[in-house]
Design a protein around this nucleic acid. Sequence first.
RNA 1: GCCCCAGUAGCUUAGCCCGGUGGAGCGGAUGGCUGUUAUUCAAUUACAGAAAAGAUACCAUCAGGUCAUCGGUUCAAAUCCGAUCUGGGGCG
Length: 371
Amino acid sequence: MTFQITHHNGQARVGILNTAHGLIETPFFMPCATKATGKSITTDDYQDSGVKAVIANALMLSLKPGMNIIQKAGGLHRFMNFKGIIFTDCGGFQMSRSIFEKKEKNGLYFRSPYDNQKIILTPQKIMEIEITLNSDVAMMLDDMSGYGVSKEEARTAMENTHRWGKECLDIHTKLRKRHNSKQLLFGIVQGNFYSDLRIESAKFINNLNFDGIAIGGLAIGEPKEEMYKSLNATLPLITKEKPRYVMGVGSPEDILECISKGIDCFDSVYPTQTARHNTLLTWKGKIDLHQGKYATDFHPLDRQCGCHTCQNYTRAYLHHLAKINEPAGKRLRSIHNVFFLQEIMEKSKDAIKNKIFAKFKKEFLKAFQRL
RNA sequence: GCCCCAGUAGCUUAGCCCGGUGGAGCGGAUGGCUGUUAUUCAAUUACAGAAAAGAUACCAUCAGGUCAUCGGUUCAAAUCCGAUCUGGGGCG
């Protein structure tokens, strides 16, 4: 059995996802390892911070170091020495980046940022890449339209996503057999911020035989109400038996909100990117390390935190590292934020098991707004 | 005692010559970062390519100044004039 729900608390649930590299309890949060590493943070740092799963990017890895090197290394896990579970994203999100050129019915066209080579990402190609990476969960190729596009554009993107979804599924089934792989394949719901498209997409993707269902195209700069509106339109149409994944979320507030709606998987650059920009997450709110008041604050970032950074360094020291733009500071900050998010997930799971998730969420949000 | 130079925001400074109520950078404050191509500089090596892209030292908003002091000239002074104070240098 791929996924089993073990506890319920309202819509929120705890479950177990069974993958080629072991079991993982849901809900869980994956920090990014886009290019087979976090930015300014290592695989070890992730593991020491309690990270059980990361998400890497198939498109970026296929460009550098390239598939043959990862194949020679014995797969992505061995290459980056990660002992947990790896999701691979397909590259659909990179449509929002400047390397994206255009899309056709057959796939997405990119330019390599390394050498300007033309890259065509088709369902066939991306499935081959992801099987070769030997990640635990592959994401199908999707067409992600940006925030604010017209309904026609959103519909075209959704239709591409649906067509590619079916193709990915067929190709993946064959490849999985041929490679004797246990890799899972997740579908992605699109539909932009049009509720009727979301509903149509949710029905379509949900009816295909994916191992899990992701909701894509959210957390891309839209107001929160828009995001929740799309999410609310989508969720009732997605089977409760499969793991549900909201791509790109995010902030502690959004994650807790999504958990309460029954989401099981998350990924985001949020903890690491904000850490690099000197915003630290604590149980009492966000800290901007730039602020002069921390120059003489010889307490840990968060007294309740058990992370490597809080166990060993003071706010004053971290402020100093921030002021001199020392890369070591980025690492220490990233470690803390990543650990913090893992703690939120652990506490959320405990709260669901004890049937007090709503209370936990309310108390967290109250405290988190305090600073 | 005499002569020269300097004094503009917490710091570094633009403006002064040719008067029209002060700009910037750093620093400070408050927000923001949500499926991460790309932090900066220098050097070396290898590879790719020959033309794009523009970020992680980012973005947005905001607050700091009786322009050393006192006086004069003028419709108007950071700006011109005089004196004083402070700091630096030189000569006795």
